[in-house]
Structure formats: C-alpha cells, structure tokens
C-alpha cells in the first residue's frame, strides 16, 4: 500500500516531457491546476482531460503506473466526494430520507470535485514522474530565485526537499524491515482498538527515528567532507531554456486561454 504512492517518485524514461526544463513543468503544473478551478462545465473538463491525456502520452509513463498512484489517495477522494454528495443543497432532490438528502446539484458537484482531484493528482504526479528530484529542486531554486532578495533561504529549502525525496524510498524500506523484526518478536499491528494500535506503533517509530537521526548526522558529515557549505556553487546541469521550452510555454498559454474561454461560455 505504502509502496503505491507515486507522488514524488521519478519514472526514468526518455520523452519530451522528461527533457523539458523543470521551470516549464512547474509553471505548467501550476497552470493546469489553476485551469481545473476555472473549469466549471463538462466542456472544460473534457478539454482538461484531453490535455492531460496528451501530456501523459508524451511522457512515456505507462497509464497503469499513474493509476496505481491514485489508489493510495482513494480514501481522501471518497471522503471529499462523500462530503459533496451529502452536504450540497439544491433544488433537484434525487433521494431523501431521515436527515440525508441527495440532490442533483450535489452529485454534479461531487463528480466535478472528484474529477478535479483526480486530475490534480495525476497532473502533479506527472510532473514529479518526469522530473528528477534534483531537476525539480533546481527548477524551484532558479524559478523562485527572486525570493532570495527578501531573504527566503530558497537554496536551503530546495536542498532539503531533494534530500527528503532521496531518502523516502530508503525509509519506506527500513520501516518494512523494522515491522518484520518486531513481528518476529510477536508484535501485532492489526488487532486491538485505536489506542492499542497507536501504542503498537512505538516499537516501529523509535527505531525509525533513531536511524533517521543517524542518517542525518552521517549525511551532514558526508556533505561537509565534500566541501558543501551552501555558498558559491556551480551547476553540473545549469537550467537553460531551449526552443522546446518556449514552445511549451506557448502551448500552456493557449491551453489556459481556451480554458478561460470555455469557462465563460
């Protein structure tokens, strides 16, 4: 289950999307998310779907892989859909008993909300799937470089993000090992009430925290030994816009314009 989370994972492949400048992808993702909130009609969603489908196609990431990532956020999705169905008031009542009232508006709202969420997750995971964490942080660092002027430590934030992303898979694996080691000592993570279950987590969390701290000190030392001081650095892969990046910006602009237009209809 925990392994199914694809957000933040990188899918190595060679595609147009993989080659794009991360700043383009970051802004593109932002544009896409904004467009989802502009869309308020079926036509808008169809357009967004078509655009998303095109991007997935261009990314060479298997659709199956992306859908698997959705599974992990299913609960969140169901909750928000549920809220919309049950809590939206409207004129066209479809079903009513006791205190529950389901209206056509609610269903519509829920469908929109569900689609929006799915698209949002797929859109943003498409970005992380096609961008290495390093590129991503580079993109953020350069793209948000102007924030440095107001003393936001953007390089440090970017570095922290990239390290976090590198260690997520390692820590997931480690959690698995710790769970097994404790299960071998008769630990039970499945039965019992909420409090008992929470208590059962202690034997997992303590070793995990201790190991994480250890990793952090080790890593800090390794970075220091490699002359890292956060100061003047050059880049192995400096970000440079290519023609395809400019074209993509234009494509995104057209897309956004279309979405606004459709929204106005």
């Amino acid at each position: 289950m925990i392994r199914d989370i694809t957000i933040g994972q990188y899918y190595p492949a060679d595609s147009l999307l993989h080659r794009l400048d991360p700043r383009v992808k970051l802004l593109g993702t932002l544009v896409f998310i904004v467009s989802l909130f502009i869309a308020d009609s079926w036509l808008g969603y169809v357009l967004a779907a078509a655009f998303l489908a095109l991007m997935i196609r261009l990314s060479n990431v298997p659709l199956k892989f992306m859908l698997r990532g959705l599974k992990a956020v299913m609960i969140l999705l169901l909750i928000s859909v549920g809220f919309n169905i049950f809590l939206t008031d409207g004129e066209h009542v479809l079903l009513e008993f006791w205190i529950i009232k389901i209206t056509w508006e609610g269903v519509k709202q829920a469908l929109f909300m569900g689609t929006r969420l799915i698209f949002l997750i797929m859109g943003s995971s498409l970005m992380t799937l096609t961008t290495t964490p390093n590129q991503l942080t580079d993109g953020l660092e350069t793209g948000l470089g102007f924030l440095k002027k107001i003393h936001v430590p953007i390089h440090e934030i970017a570095m922290m993000m990239s390290i976090a992303l590198r260690f997520i898979p390692i820590l997931i694996e480690e959690t698995d090992k710790i769970m097994k080691a404790q299960m071998a000592r008769g630990a039970d993570f499945e039965t019992g009430g909420l409090i008992q279950k929470a208590k059962a987590l202690v034997p997992i969390l303590v070793p995990l925290f201790i190991s994480s701290f250890r990793r952090a000190t080790d890593l800090a030392m390794a970075m220091e030994a490699r002359c890292y001081n956060g100061g003047d650095r050059t880049k192995m892969k400096p970000l440079k816009y290519e023609t395809r990046d400019y074209i993509t910006y234009v494509v995104f602009a057209i897309y956004l314009a279309l979405m606004i237009l459709v929204g106005r209809l």
């Binding site: 097994k180 299960m183 071998a184 000592r185 008769g186 303590v206 190991s211």
Partner: peptide, 20 residues
Amino acid sequence: KGLRSKVGLVFQYPEHQLFE
C-alpha cells in the same frame, strides 16, 4: 504468533528492533 515464538528470527541489524 505461536509459530513466531517457537521459530525465533533475529534480523541482521539490532537497530531495527531495539526501542525500549
């Protein structure tokens, strides 16, 4: 659970199980 108490398995890294 009964089996695991009879067939004891100690994993490679003690750091993975010590917590108290």
